[in-house]
Amino acid sequence: MTAPVSSRETGIRLDVRTPSDLCDFVDQMDGAAVGELVVRGPSREVRGIVFIEDRRVCWAAARGLARRLTELLLGRAPGISADAMEELFRRCKQEGTPLGELLVARGVVAPDDLRAALLEHTAESLRVLLSPGDAEVGWCVRPGPGYSARFTFHTAEVLARTARRSMSREEQVLAGEIDTALESAFGRGGWGAAFIRGSGAAPVPVAVFGELPATTRDVLRVGKWAASALDLASTFQDADALVSADAPGSDSVFVAWRLGLDSPGLDSPLPAIVAGRTCAQGPGRILNQRANGRLRTGVNHGGLRS
């Protein structure tokens, strides 16, 4: 039986106003810390809870969004009825067992689909919890065993998914397509992210892939580097140029390029920046992929010769 939130709260009040603040806080935590960020409104009512473990976000729950997780899971589990899902949900709540892990164990939902549903639900919840900008956030230590690391999230994943939720439906679909592009560009061992430039100065990630650096701040640093390098390169190079720079003290490189995401539903292509870290051969692989893409579209191309 889990103790009520009020009896376990540490009394520490955190300056967490945005999802980005939350990511920073989680990244700076002691790696062994397990607990909950309790989000309250101006009149001290609990709006929801964000579960944290090992500097990762397990999931976020907001008042009024409990059924939303069931909807998201049902969308990924066509073999189960809404009533059956509700029944499972109730039973898990009573027994204190994680619903998602039970669904995976029973083969109702594939692990990747559960992960996607949890991430989506967490992003939706965080927007509800933090978007008014008037939240009071406290830290609450949680005893007992933690979550399965398989279904927890790097803070950059959470930030990207949260940022994506502020995009239009068309743009969200396009951002979803970047996931596949990142995987093929960065492959095993590397990591990459797609950024858009919002109203703020720094590019914001909307998709991430691979073995991400320790903190979201590092992901943002690479996005900022990429934006600056591409802006600079555009003063003497074409807009489609790829920039790569050797990472000192390693055999890896930072790489960046622009991506225009287009769709009939958009007035103009959504300008994105792709950036990340890959092996020394990575830029060659990416250039080949880009060249092949240009060949398919009949446009002359450059790149590495084999």
């Binding site: 920073d24 720094a202 701040r217 580097w225 190079q237 050797d246 830029p283």
Partner: peptide
């Protein structure tokens, strides 16, 4: 290139870059 894993204030992205040995700009 950006210096990763460096300490700094939360949200601070302007830490000093480090000197890389080589770079490419390809179009």
């Amino acid at each position: 290139t950006p210096r990763l894993d460096s300490p700094g204030d939360a949200g601070q992205l302007d830490d000093e870059d480090q000197l890389g040995t080589a770079a490419l700009v390809v179009s």
